[in-house]
Design a binder for these strands. Structure first.
Length: 411
RNA sequence: GGACAGAUGGCCGAGCGGUUGAAGGCGCACGCCUGGAACGCGUGUGUAGUGAAAGCUACCGAGGGUUCGAAUCCCUCUCUGUCCGCCA
């Protein structure tokens, strides 16, 4: 959530910054009005409550002194109605405020370029040159027989895939390799639930706005996680961390589940866009002043790993229009796919600033004061897409697939 | 899934329906004491909102209810513990 105090203090700045994310001024000005209204209503309520408390205390005194209570009772009865009235009014106003506020995305960092979609993202750096093929490279779904789409669909539905043989082994090798690599970058491995409740999903910003993209467990307040970011970040939900605990750096390998509602017919072939996929995730919790440095650290960690894996890739700074709901600044890492002759996203690393911290109430003790932390998250790599990248970049003319050297000891 | 027990501040632990935001202890911070420390003594020490501040308001697992007034009484839910059942 954005900071309402900042909005009311410096309305114009917030409006201009949020224009990058195409949030209309109208919504923000409505929000500002609601906030003002809410504060007024709350203040009225508090006044009535104060009176009620004060008068109620007199009952004890009167009783002790043997005084008559009748008059007082009548007086307090009147005020009670006021309290009830303002409670209702205030609650209504609060609900309106929260409904609106929880839909407003994070304020982009000043470094975020203007732009409406991915075509206006800024390419920061390109690493490794794509190899020259002496033959026409095949798409990953045309190679080998690791991927069994028919049976995945039979077991579940379309966009579920069975991976067999060396492919299955390679997938597991990648997970192990990535976790080991992350540990060497200072991230501690954690094993977390892959179902979380709505409060956790609210904390990281998936709810309430993106419910249609989540798989929900019927009859329970539980959802399959769309990313381990939800579990890892909410580990600290409603906590006040000690200053010396920061920064926290953790990593986890989990399956992720997404309905891909609205993705239409995109990437229908292959395993680039699946309802279920493994992803190794990085999460960091830092003091506000350290978060941008941590973002760079995470990006370079992921990039180094891809370099070790010998996969050509590039770093891309997302423009305002392509920035996710919770993100303040995001750097995507894209890998080269020979069959598409394109770079495709394999990792997305974001600094969410205090946006998630405010929603999830994650704070730290700064001397006497409690301050909101900054949270960051990033795919250390989407495992399925890494598999695709390896298959396509390491294919040989006779359709076999070689394996990056660093993975040899893992398979 | 069934039965019983419980849920209070960083922790332990009191708490008759009325100066209890909450005794007491531990821990922690600061000060005094000391050559230095321990001991001892003193002061302070939850979260959030609002306000320039004093203060005011809310919060004793969560949500409702009774009452002028609820940590305290009633209802629902959640969680934890123990026993039974089931089970990787």
């Amino acid at each position: 959530m954005i900071d309402l105090k900042l909005l009311s203090r410096d309305f114009d700045t917030v409006v201009s910054k949020l224009q990058k994310k195409r949030v209309s001024e109208e919504i923000l000005s409505q929000l500002q009005d609601f906030y003002k209204e809410y504060k007024e209503k709350k203040s009225e309520l508090e006044k009535a409550q104060a009176l009620q408390n004060e008068k109620s205390k007199l009952f004890g005194v009167y009783k002790r002194e043997g005084k008559d209570i009748g008059e007082l009772k009548k007086e307090v009865g009147e005020n009670k109605k006021r309290v009830a009235f303002f409670t209702d009014v205030m609650r209504e106003s609060e609900e309106k405020l929260e409904t609106l506020l929880s839909q407003v995305p994070n304020i982009p960092d000043d470094a975020v370029p203007e732009g409406v979609d991915e075509s206006e993202n800024e390419i920061l750096e390109t690493i490794l040159t794509p190899r020259e093929f002496s033959f026409t490279p095949k798409a990953h779904y045309e190679l080998e027989s690791w991927l069994d789409f028919e049976r995945g669909t039979k077991l579940a539905k379309s966009r579920f895939t069975v991976i067999r043989g060396k492919g299955a082994k390679l997938e597991r090798a990648l997970i192990n390799y990535m976790l080991d690599f992350n540990r060497s970058c200072g991230f501690d491995e954690v094993s977390v639930p892959i179902l979380t409740n709505s409060n956790s999903l609210f904390g990281t910003g998936q709810l309430p706005k993106f419910e249609e993209d989540l798989f929900k467990i019927e009859g329970e307040d539980l959802y399959l996680i769309p990313t381990a970011e939800v579990s890892l970040t909410n580990l600290f939900n409603d906590e006040i961390l000690k200053s010396e605990e920061l920064p926290i750096q953790i990593t986890s390998a989990t399956p992720c589940f997404r309905k891909e509602a609205g993705s239409g017919g995109r990437d229908i072939r292959g395993i680039i866009r699946q309802h279920q996929f493994y992803k190794v995730e990085l999460v960091a919790v830092t003091k506000p002043e350290d978060s941008n440095e941590m973002l760079d650290k995470m990006v370079s960690c992921v990039s180094k790993m891809l370099t070790e894996l010998e996969i050509p890739h590039r770093k891309v700074l997302l423009c305002g229009g392509d920035l996710g709901f919770s993100a303040q600044k995001t750097i995507d890492i894209e890998v080269w796919l020979p069959s598409q002759e394109k770079y495709r996203e394999i990792s997305s690393i974001s600094n969410t600033g205090d946006f998630q911290a405010r929603r999830a109430k994650i704070r730290y003790k700064d001397g006497k004061k409690n301050r909101l932390v900054h949270t960051l998250n990033g795919s250390s790599l989407a495992v399925g897409r890494t598999l695709v990248a390896i298959m396509e970049n390491f294919q040989t003319e006779n359709g076999e697939i070689e394996i990056p050297k660093v993975l040899e000891k893992y398979v």
